[in-house]
Amino acid sequence: MEIVVSMAIGVMGGAGVWLVLRPRTFQVLIGLSLLSYAVNLFIFSVGSLSTGKEPIVKPGLPADLTNYTDPLPQSLVLTAIVIGFATTALFLVVLLALRGLSGGDHVDGREEQP
């Protein structure tokens, strides 16, 4: 399973990087979303992967990582998901404002001069 998760992180990260380097705002926006998926999953996986060990306290079970998965990365990622949503929204609106001002959707506000 580890290899699948790491491959998933790699593919999403690579696709995100490719898109972030594109000149169109929508591409960059999608790229950032993909990158944040990759990073969230990466941070989440730092806390070691395990199935069926939700960090919900059960009476009588010793409080260590053999019985529970690590809750710390989970709470970090939860925050990251919500903040990511907020920044995506902000970026989308800035993108729309840029579109209104410049008439185009190039990230620099105007087409490149070769």
Partner: peptide, 18 residues
């Protein structure tokens, strides 16, 4: 660049997970 960064991410996280 995307290929490099993507594979680096995959390798790093695999090393981390194992």
């Amino acid at each position: 660049i995307a290929l490099l960064i993507g594979s680096a991410l995959a390798v790093l996280s695999y090393a981390l997970l194992t």
